[in-house]
Every structure is written in C-alpha cells, then in structure tokens.
C-alpha cells in the first residue's frame, strides 16, 4: 500500500471507469441486486433528471417505462451462475446512456442456457415486425396470455418495441456450460 493509502491500480481503475463512462456517454451505471425498491428509485431518479433537462413529456414517460420493465425483468428472470436455476431477487448490470439523439437503457444478467433459444427467438421475431404487426401481436398476447408464476405477462419486450419504435438490441456471452450473460439494449429516441 502506498503512503496515500490507495493502491495505484485502484486509482487507475477509477480513472478508466470515469473516462469509459464519459466516452460512452453513460449517466448511470449499477451492478448488483435489483429489487422493487431500487426499480422505483432508479425510475424516479431518471424521471426527475429528465424533467430537469426539460426533456419532452413523451420521452420522459417512455424512459420511465422501459426502465421499470427492464429492471423488473432482471429482478424476476435472473439465474444463478453455478446452478443455472432462478434466483430472487435477481442481479445484474444496469446502464443508462444519453447521446444527442437517444437515451439508451442497457441491462445485463445471467440466464440459463435453457432459456436462450426462447429469448433469441422472441426478440428476433419482434425485431422483424412493423408497428402495425407489433400492435396486433400485443393485443393478441394481452388477450391470450396467462400471468406466469413470477408475475410476468410475456408482454414486456413486445410493449417496449411498440412504444419505442426501435429495434431491440441483444447479445449473449458464454459464462460457463450452464449459463450465458444476456445483454439487452433499448434505445429511446429524443425529440
């Protein structure tokens, strides 16, 4: 330990973290457990920040909505890296970025390989649909779906695509033979 009580490697990390946040235009980065309280806190925080920045009402509402859906997704649908089975509350990373044209909400969490095919198929399918098709699918799913045990309606991604009018970004990185790291990136157009 140096006489200033800080390991130089840590200083380097902190500075790099700072420059990465700035370069990537991130305004919020979080890693850890996502519970209901935190969901409400982040969503309200974003709402206040956007209000202060005099962002359009409609953009504010969309950012709030996407944040709530994404955070509740992580909270409800994260798997354990060792066993590959569900954990509650879930945890993961949560990033909010802001560029000249967009807000970008990114989540990353551990999901069992058994769920990847389903997620990929769902998102690929949604990304192929135009706004009218999305509306039709949303109504069909709303009418026909049953709430899952975890309280999900299977509507989240469809609704996000419908409300943002943007394609949903997603990717997977292998963690081990049981699980992947699932990355989801949603953009909301600024007016």
């Amino acid at each position: 330990m140096e006489e200033n009580q800080i390991d130089p490697k840590f200083t380097k990390f902190a500075y790099e973290f700072h420059t990465t946040m700035v370069d990537r235009k991130l305004m919020l980065a979080y890693e850890g457990e996502i519970n209901q309280q935190l969901t409400k806190t982040f969503a309200s925080m974003a709402k206040n920040t956007l209000e202060k920045d005099e962002e359009d009402n409609s953009v504010r509402r969309k950012v709030f909505h996407v944040m709530v859906e994404c955070l509740q997704n992580i909270g409800k649908h994260t798997d354990d890296p060792d066993s590959g089975t569900g954990i509650s509350p879930g945890s993961g990373i949560f990033l909010v970025g802001k560029t000249k044209d967009h807000y970008a909400i990114t989540t990353g969490n551990i999901v069992s390989k058994t769920r990847i095919h389903e997620i990929r198929t769902l998102l690929t399918g949604i990304n192929k649909l135009d706004p009218d098709d999305l509306k039709t699918l949303y109504k069909k799913q709303l009418r026909e779906s049953r709430l899952s045990e975890k309280g999900g309606a299977g509507l989240g991604f469809i609704d996000i695509a419908k409300k943002t009018g943007q394609k949903i970004g997603f990717d997977f990185i292998e963690v081990n033979e049981k699980v992947d790291f699932f990355l989801l990136k949603i953009r909301i157009k600024r007016n």
């Binding site: 709530v68 779906s145 709430l147 309280g151 309606a153």
Partner: peptide
C-alpha cells in the same frame, strides 16, 4: 398515469 405490462394483464 402509468402501468407496467404485468398490471396491463390484471387491468384486462
């Protein structure tokens, strides 16, 4: 003012 997608199912 606002409802999430899980609530939309219950409102239905």
């Amino acid at each position: 003012d606002y409802f999430n997608t899980a609530s939309s199912k219950m409102i239905l």
